[in-house]
Design a protein around this nucleic acid. Sequence first.
DNA 1: AGAATACTTGGCAAAATCGCCAAGTAAAGA
DNA 2: TCTTTACTTGGCGATTTTGCCAAGTATTCT
Lengths: 107, 107
Amino acid sequence: MTTPQLPRTTSRINVIKALAHPSRLTIVEALQSGEQCVCDLRNLVGTDLSTVSKHLAILRSAGLLSMEKRGLKVFYRLSCPCFLDFLNCVDRMSSSTSSSPSCSTAG
Amino acid sequence: MTTPQLPRTTSRINVIKALAHPSRLTIVEALQSGEQCVCDLRNLVGTDLSTVSKHLAILRSAGLLSMEKRGLKVFYRLSCPCFLDFLNCVDRMSSSTSSSPSCSTAG
DNA sequence: AGAATACTTGGCAAAATCGCCAAGTAAAGA
DNA sequence: TCTTTACTTGGCGATTTTGCCAAGTATTCT
């Protein structure tokens, strides 16, 4: 990384990189409908428990998830309700990829 | 990638991964204020011209940028005007990282 | 046509990321 | 206390990404 970025760019990258992995995005999408424990998320993404745990740590350190231990289980939830907005924005951009020459801001 | 993702997740990842690099995000941020040629973007990010060119190819293949050659120069611009919305969403999420326990959708 | 400018592409080494296994921690139950 | 369950962390090989150099392409100028 030779680019000297602005502070705002750096914090944006922190969030975007955390979401830039299929398993992690899948986790985040699943948590939109409510909290889940790690073993459920493990079944969802289908990789080793330790791998899931590390993905969760990355999302957590990016500030996107919060965790709570209840009994033996650890539950994760989105720490930010504006995720839906975010994904809508991504969808508008990705839809412009496939066919249409541009996308609208009006979603 | 052992995770079998939904099609929607896959296209989302395509966009998010394209933005998950400091130089590429810096480029995209700069293009918000209008088109620029590759050599200007090269000065902006400060890496080799070939490196910038490859970053631009990644952003282009993700459908985020469009290019137009005029004379010797190649001008790049955002192909989607909803970028500002996207970055605002990212900012709301990244702001929840640092101090406050959660962020608001009304941001 | 030959030279210069503005890029793009190929190739490769360095760096970062990913995913598994093994080992460690914490809470609950026998 | 010992075992089990649910997870986290360390470590390491395998894959992916990154960035430079060298070479190639396209357009303009002389």
